[in-house]
Amino acid sequence: MSECNYLYGNYCAEKRVTVLSQMLDFCGIEKDRLRARWVSSAEAPEFVEEINEFIDVLKPLGPSPLKKQTSKDVA
């Protein structure tokens, strides 16, 4: 975590993500749909692994409930 190129940026992001994920949950949107991980540009395999893991989490959740109900988004 302490390896951010810009020193603290990732900590700040982490705090905001913490709040947002719980707010999504409060509004009835699965919080697993939001994910923040820290992968450096030198860690390609880790990045791929993260994305694949995320895909595995997302697939069972199905499409966003918002998508179904707002025609605007679908178009």
Partner: peptide, 10 residues
């Protein structure tokens, strides 16, 4: 300024 964008995010 190093252009990290922390201020912009805040």
């Amino acid at each position: 300024c190093k252009g990290c964008g922390n201020c912009a995010a805040t």
